[in-house]
Design a protein around this nucleic acid. Structure first.
Lengths: 313, 313
DNA sequence: CTCGGGCATAAGCTGGAGTTATGAGCGACC
DNA sequence: GGTCGCTCATAACTCCAGCTTATGCCCGAG
């Protein structure tokens, strides 16, 4: 746990991100202004009055110390700095939308119409995006979400307490039909100052197996896939109980880590972590949609399923 | 513009994401509770009192309709739902951190010690991450940021109004030394219900050149790279003036788009957009750090440069 | 049995964000 | 040139979310 602590807070924050970043309402307002070209219309689109919007944008500019919008009697447009800030803001708002749909699904546990049961990795990283897309097509579908391992997912489906499930790993629980919807690739990453980050040649299996790695605990999905690919061998440097903890340790430079590419977005593109190519072994596992044998998904479940696979068939 | 509007708001929001998602302070608090295992310690770490934390977590639970933490006289730990929510929250907080360092750099324009000039794409998608890493190593470095095209970046550097620059594209402005720090790959994407999403075979250059695409305007960096790779041919379906607008149009299903992989994170992994493989042409451009000829980066500029390349040399 | 860490409750204060009402700048149009 | 219409800014007031301090309950450890 203490490793996780250090990993998550490598630098002492001057206590209060919230005081330096505008709140979600202000960010949404800024995006609306960028989109609609006027404070008044932006205000209207958010259901507040124009003076409220004006004051809020102004206080955001004061907080950031930068002018964000050019006001004129003919409308408002973003300044150069405003355009930059708006794109950063969009990232936050998109993350908030994912949070929202996830939370919505969680909240509607009792009285919902589409009940989804999913493994942790899928529930964390993929489902929010799918549900955003689903909401775009079927805005009035209430979705509930339960997260658990394959066994739990299977139980819920068979007890008719869920309509559609998602599991990861090589096997399909008994009594369920399945369709592979994607593959989750496990990748090897290090902090950018690790010697591996400067290698020219890809790693091979023997090298990977002989190096102590930051791993999930024995029995976890990712660990199983890795040990399967390596023929049972895997040397843990540290064993941690969540994907996030593994990521944090890798970020803090503890060593090479193996984790799902789904968990790594910005860390790779911003080079806070570096992907180390591996050759000769296939580090991937199938992600499957599952449902009780015979009960082909219909209605909202079918809609969601088709979203995860591409075109509706 | 109206295309952009539709792209950004394909579904009518029930006005007020901010009312359904806890504010940043609450999310930070939740992360602190997860990390520290106690409301009191979490409160302390954020500089507030224990009752404030208690009440805030409680109101967040009320808002979400789900219990997030198990309280006991021996501390607090996350419930299953809490763990899920915490991971979604982490995404938001990380986006907010990127916003914060970017804004900080923008704010310190006047009196800063490390002055960076960068192209829009780099300033939007990469610099915040690098600056987070830089702050971890050199917490007291004040960074300023100016965003503009290659010409602007060169001017600033040569006028000694910037210490380090970042540009994208095939050429290095005169009077500057450069080092390639990464390559930005352009990729072809469509919405998942586009016929291309079901292809088995990769696209070839002729096919790409003969299909109308959603593109940036003529003269933009990505457009130049594409036309270079295709030998001057590119059929625009729509021309838009920002990467974000291109992404939005693609998301709304207007057609295939070509854009930087940097701009696509969650959209690909959540299959809201699908990457279409292309063979036979190289759609990439170099990202370069630049500085006035002879003035090798030193001090903070050197630190930042080394972060973008990996190990400090 | 008492102490201490951890959480909950109560009462009071404050500031931020909202509202309505009003004014001022500027282009369009008759 | 007046007048409309759209824009944004300012002022005065209300209200509530979140903070604080003070206090009490619970429960395990010594």
């Amino acid at each position: 746990m203490s490793d996780r602590d250090r990993g998550l807070a490598p630098v002492e924050r001057s206590a209060g991100l919230a005081h330096r970043v505008p709140d979600l309402g202000a960010l949404e307002l800024l995006l609306a202004v960028a989109r609609l070209g006027s404070l008044g219309r932006a205000a209207q689109s958010l259901g507040i009055t124009q003076p409220a919007a004006s004051s809020r944008i102004r206080s955001m500019e004061r907080q950031l110390g930068v002018a964000l919008v050019d006001r004129s009697p003919r409308g408002s447009s973003l300044t150069d700095a405003g355009a930059l800030v708006t794109d950063w803001a969009r990232r936050i708002v998109e993350a908030a939308e994912a949070f929202d749909v996830g939370a919505q699904a969680l909240r509607d546990r009792r009285d919902s119409r589409l009940r989804v049961a999913a493994s942790m990795t899928i529930a964390e990283y993929l489902l929010p995006g799918w549900l955003i897309a689903l909401r775009a097509e079927r805005p009035d579908t209430a979705v509930s979400l339960l997260a658990g391992n394959s066994t739990v997912v299977a139980e819920r489906l068979l007890a008719d307490e869920a309509d559609l499930g998602f599991v990861e790993g090589p096997t399909v629980p008994a009594g369920l039909d399945a369709a592979v919807i994607a593959h989750d690739h496990l990748i090897v990453v290090t902090a950018p100052d690790h010697p591996w980050a400067r290698r020219r040649k890809p790693l091979d299996a023997a090298e990977l197996a002989s190096t102590p790695l930051i791993l999930r605990e024995k029995g976890s999905g990712t660990r199983q896939v890795l040990e399967g690919a390596l023929g049972g061998l895997a040397r843990p440097l540290i064993e941690l109980s969540s994907t996030t903890a593994v990521k944090s340790s890798a970020l803090s430079g503890a060593g090479p880590a193996v984790l799902s590419e789904l968990a790594l977005g910005e860390e790779l593109s911003a080079r806070r972590l570096v992907r180390i190519p591996v050759e000769g072994i296939r580090l991937r596992r199938a992600l499957r949609a599952v449902w009780p044998t015979g009960h082909r998904p219909a209605g909202p479940a079918r809609d969601l399923l088709s979203l995860t696979r591409g075109p509706a068939t």
